Each structure stands twice: as C-alpha cells, then as structure tokens.
Simulated scan of single mutants.
Amino acid sequence: MIDLYSWATPNGHKVHIMLEECGLPYRVHGIDIGKGEQFAPEFLAISPNNKIPAIVDPEGPDGQPISLFESGAILLYLAGKTGRFLPQDVRGKYQTLEWLMFQMGGVGPMLGQAHHFRIYAPEKLPYAVDRYTNEARRLYGVMDRQIACTGAYMAGSDYTIADIAIFPWLRSWQNQGIDWADFPALKAWFDRVEARPAVQRGVQVLADRRKPFRTEAEKEVLFGKAQYQRR
C-alpha cells in the first residue's frame, strides 16, 4: 500500500486523482501546511523541499521501497508503475510530457502567484495583481486554443497525466480573475474532467480538513520567515 503525505491543495489533488484513477491502494497522511507540519523532520526525510505531496511506495521498481516528492515526478512514477495515462507511442508520450511541463513550469507557479497577490498578500499591490491576473488569462488562452485544436484533452484525444496535472489548478478560476465565458473550449474540457468519478473522489481527499488560512500565524508559516529557515 502506498503511503501518501499530502494536503487538499491543487498539487496534492493531482496525486489524489491519479491514485484514484489508477485504483491503487493508498493510505493518507494529512500534512497540515497551515500548522507547519511540512517542516517536521520525518516529512523532510521524504520531501526535502518541505512541500506536499510526497509518497512512499513499499513496492518500488526494484522491489525495494521508494520515496518521491514533486507532484509531476509522482505522476510519472505512477503512470510507469501502472502503464496508464501516459501514451506508449513516442509521439504521444512527448506530447503529453510537454503539457505536463507546461503545468509544472507555467500553470502552477503563475496561478499560485495570482492566488497569493489577489488573496493572501498583506498589501494589495496593483502591479502584482495585474501582472499575475493577466498571465493567468494568457495561460487560459493557450489551453483554450489547444483544446479547440484537439477537441478533447490537452495532449490529444486521450485523457492523460497532463489533464490530471492541470485540472486541480483551474478549480480556483474565480480567484484567478477568470471568466469562463472567455474560454469556451477549455470550459468544456474542465466539465469533462470534472465529471470523472475518480476525479470527484480525488478532490475530496482531505478536503474536510482544510480550512481557509485566516490567522497571522498560519500566514507566517506559509509565506513568512518560517519558509526560509535553514533545516
């Protein structure tokens, strides 16, 4: 059984959804990032960047336990383990990987900054809000055009880890300043993915435990000096 160390965030939900889609047995260990549990030595031993999610698979590729952090790496590992959601043909594989990297390098970081400056920043800085809101809209436009071309999913006609990686980040579209009316093809894709039973189960993992970050202590843990202490 895979041990999953996670929280109900977009990056956490990527792996929750993948585990549900693959039907792999897993045990959830909630890492409350508002309370600073990501800095515990036991968690840092498997996720040295103090970020969720992370997994420990007792049945690794060589029969020995393996621990992994970084959600994209975990998706690739689980796809390799199960032979699912990553095309076997070379062209399809790299088309999927380019959209996975698009999420890891663009969608996640940029939409994360949009969330921060629109919602969490102690000062509302118009330049930062405009910069990241505009970048969010640009990225939505890229994805909208891609789905209009494929007619189905990010990397083509099949549902892949690229879709699994991108979908959780778009669930907070309102917080990113997005109007779905501007992106009809992408909205149709979003609805297709959201309707999948495994996706619906995945986004419920730990959802009942996550609460909005309201206190100054929680914000300090997430965005303040606690992030930058050497450990």
Rank of each mutant, 00 (worst) to 15 (best):
R91S: 11
I66T: 02
L111H: 07
A40D: 15
R201N: 13
G177I: 10
E20A: 01
V107S: 07
G151N: 09
D191Q: 11
I55T: 06
A73V: 06
A40Y: 12
E42Q: 13
P87E: 03
A207W: 00
N50I: 03
S47C: 13
E98C: 09
D208T: 14
Y127E: 06
E98K: 13
R171A: 14
E59R: 08
E98Y: 10
I74W: 01
R91A: 11
L139R: 03
F183K: 05
Q176E: 15
L222T: 09
V142T: 09
E70G: 05
Y127W: 08
L111W: 01
G34V: 04
L111R: 02
G202Y: 02
P10F: 10
L68A: 01
R210I: 11
K51D: 00
K211V: 11
Y159V: 03
Y94S: 06
G36F: 10
V129G: 05
P212K: 03
P61C: 00
E216I: 08
G36S: 11
F85P: 03
P126V: 06
L24R: 01
W180R: 13
K219E: 00
F190H: 15
L44S: 11
W189F: 10
F85R: 02
F39Y: 14
A185W: 14
V199N: 05
H16E: 05
K35L: 14
A185L: 09
E218M: 02
V56R: 09
A207E: 10
G151R: 11
R145Y: 02
M154P: 02
I119L: 13
K51T: 04
R214D: 11
A155Q: 09
Y120M: 12
I46Y: 01
V56A: 01
G108R: 06
I33V: 14
A8C: 15
I17Y: 00
S6K: 13
F167T: 06
D144F: 05
Q113S: 00
S6L: 11
R230F: 12
Q146I: 05
F39G: 08
Y140P: 06
A73F: 07
A40Q: 15
I2W: 04
L19D: 00
E21M: 07
S71N: 07
E42V: 13
D191W: 14
L139H: 00
G105T: 12
S47N: 11
F102V: 07
P197E: 08
I46R: 04
K93D: 05
L186Q: 10
E59Y: 11
P126S: 08
N49L: 14
L86M: 09
P10R: 12
A45E: 12
Q200E: 09
A79N: 00
S71P: 04
A162E: 12
M154D: 08
Y94V: 02
P58Q: 00
P122Q: 06
N134F: 10
I164R: 03
T150D: 05
K51I: 01
F117N: 05
A79T: 00
E218C: 09
P61A: 00
P25R: 04
I52W: 01
R118E: 07
C149N: 14
P53D: 03
P48F: 07
A54M: 03
I66V: 12
M18C: 04
I52N: 02
A148C: 12
M101Y: 14
I178V: 15
Y153T: 06
R137T: 08
V193I: 11
R210V: 12
K93Q: 14
F223K: 09
E98R: 14
A217W: 09
L4S: 09
H116Q: 08
D89V: 08
A79L: 01
